[in-house]
């Protein structure tokens, strides 16, 4: 925690122009994220979570302020293909099967066929969709589609994983299972994860730190350290420490 941060967000503001009317989505957000850290962006709908994630991903230019990743601009990092992005909606290609969808970024990066197959097989197993690998997206449920989107983001083995409410369309069981899967992958690969959610419990279970955003205009209103031990287990969800943290974060909302 004492070395230089991997991602430095400095005074980032974002003002959208919506038909002549200015909408301030983010106001003066500053944050430093260490390499390998698991960070959650938590907040109610419309507080600018997606906006912040998109700015980091170089899908959006901030109105003011800067983002640096290892001393580089988000654009350079995108061109180096170090971002894995899971969008809020799955964004699958209808004409590609599950397998081919996961394979898409690997084809673009011209990774050799055997390696492509190995990685896709492993990911299919992880998301539990081996039996559906030759289905088209419109033959899957929303939750299954979302899992394909996650597998696709992991396929390129990105250094930074940006996830926009990846599990919000899932049922509680699948969600908790994928939470644990995600933590396992994260521990194995030492990726930096920025995870958007509006579930307090989920953010506590997953994160090293939870960044609480508040709306109108979107600001960083609190950063809460989650000092639960790792690896996190199912049982921890029922521990008093867990509840204390959830309460602490909930209170930080009410203080707004």
């Amino acid at each position: 925690m004492n070395n230089t941060p991997e991602i430095t967000i400095k005074n980032v503001s974002m003002v959208y122009n919506d038909k002549g009317r200015d909408v301030t989505a983010l106001s003066n957000v500053s944050l430093e994220i260490q390499k390998g850290e698991f960070i959650s962006l938590l907040g109610p709908s419309g507080c600018g979570k997606t906006t912040l994630l998109r700015i980091i991903a170089d899908l959006l230019q901030p109105t003011s302020g800067t983002v640096e990743v290892c001393g580089k601009s988000p654009r350079e990092v995108r061109l180096e293909k170090k971002y894995g992005i899971v969008f809020q909606s799955p964004v699958l290609y209808d004409w590609r099967t599950v397998r081919k969808n996961i394979c898409l970024p690997l084809e673009l990066m011209k990774i050799d066929k055997a390696e492509q197959n190995n990685r896709v097989d492993a990911l299919l197993e992880m998301i539990g969709l081996e039996k559906f690998q030759n289905h088209y997206p419109n033959q899957l449920s929303g939750g299954m589609q979302q899992r394909v989107g996650i597998a696709r983001a992991l396929a390129i083995q990105p250094e930074i994983l940006l996830m926009d409410e990846p599990f919000s369309a899932l049922d509680e069981f699948t969600r908790e299972k994928l939470n644990e899967d995600l933590l396992r992958i994260w521990r194995k690969t030492n990726k930096t994860v920025i995870f958007v959610t509006h579930s307090i419990a989920e953010s506590v279970f997953l994160s090293d730190r939870v960044c609480v955003l508040s709306p109108h205009p979107g600001r960083l209103s609190a950063v809460v350290d989650i000092d639960l031990p790792r690896p996190r287990t199912k049982e921890m969800r029922e521990s008093p420490e867990f509840f204390n943290l959830v309460t602490k974060i909930r209170n930080s909302f009410e203080g707004v």
Binding site: K81, I85, F87, S89, V91, Y93
Partner: peptide, 24 residues
Amino acid sequence: EKRELMYSYAAKKRSVYIKLMLPF
């Protein structure tokens, strides 16, 4: 969003057409 995905992979225009625009 479908184009954005290609953009996030820094895909070349040619690939964008072959893998996205034309099949779509």
